[in-house]
Design a protein around this nucleic acid. Structure first.
Ligand code: FES
Ligand code: FES
Lengths: 143, 143
DNA sequence: TTAATAAAGGATAAAAAGGTCTTTAAATCG
DNA sequence: CGATTTAAAGACCTTTTTATCCTTTATTAA
């Protein structure tokens, strides 16, 4: 569904957000440990998210990553777009170059329902709302 | 969503089915032309589907591919499983090794709805039913 | 029975995704 | 200032996916 980059990216963002919510800044080492992801690779992914200002990075001693309160309203759809592009929202189920209702593939009308539901879900889910869910004991970001 | 293999495979199957329905057998060359896919690569994919008996292949002059009437009831979910495995039905949105409701990721309950809808759609859509839709003028398998 | 035809199969190559390593830049603190 | 800490950046490597090519095998029809 999502690329590895996107999976790691989402998990990293959610972990940073959870910690920022508690007032803590987290280092790259901590992040990759806590979400169980390859550190250098995850660092690359976070670079994209700092360039787009979703995540704030601070260098030097006691540095690390945070997500500012105003960015907590960012929707997951934005993060997915940054990391995976928009093919998940726009692509044809059968790989036709253009997905459109005027010359649809035979799965088009069944498929766009599902695709649109996914898009809707991501567009209505903010970082903040997920962080709230994360406070529940059983909800996890690694394993 | 699906791999290229799966996209080409589904398009090839649907084209073969459409032609078989009219009593025609189709060659690899025709298939790749009519669904606009790389021929040798598509041939590999069809090998998997002939080994699993979804598609019937006949060598030699006037040979080619067909789908027997009794295979027209095959569900698209089967083809997807053969070509892409079952990660699309079972995988975690955030890439956790195990997706399960007892220790869910924070997107679990929102995600499984979408994932299950996709699975349901594929499991209830037979080759035959798609071939019927294909008779409509505007529905296409290439471009 | 032989030439032609068409799929099967194996070897190889190119491109993309996934991942590592090393150097550079910025920030902090003694 | 200089040593230390931490992220940024770029070069590089590995694996997987996508794709091609060539030889073999099966089938058919003349
Ligand atoms: S054209 Fe295939 S999903 Fe829209
Ligand atoms: S655990 Fe992540 S989707 Fe189920």
């Amino acid at each position: 569904m999502f690329s590895k980059s996107c999976e790691y990216g989402l998990r990293a963002v959610l972990f940073i957000a959870q910690q920022s919510d508690k007032g803590a800044k987290v280092s790259m080492t901590t992040i990759s440990e806590e979400i169980n992801s390859p550190q250098a690779f995850t660092a690359k992914i976070l670079q994209k998210l700092t360039r787009t200002d979703i995540v704030k990075a601070v260098k030097g001693p006691h540095g690390g990553f945070t997500i500012e309160p105003e960015m907590m309203d960012t929707k997951l759809s934005e993060i997915v777009t940054i990391l995976d592009g928009d093919s998940i929202y726009k692509g044809c189920a059968l790989g036709l170059k253009q997905c459109d209702a005027n010359s649809p593939c035979p799965l088009h009308f069944k498929f766009i329902e599902i695709r649109d539901n996914l898009q809707e879900m991501l567009e209505t889910t903010s970082i903040k709302s997920v962080v709230n869910d994360l406070s529940l004991e059983s909800i996890i970001l690694k394993r």
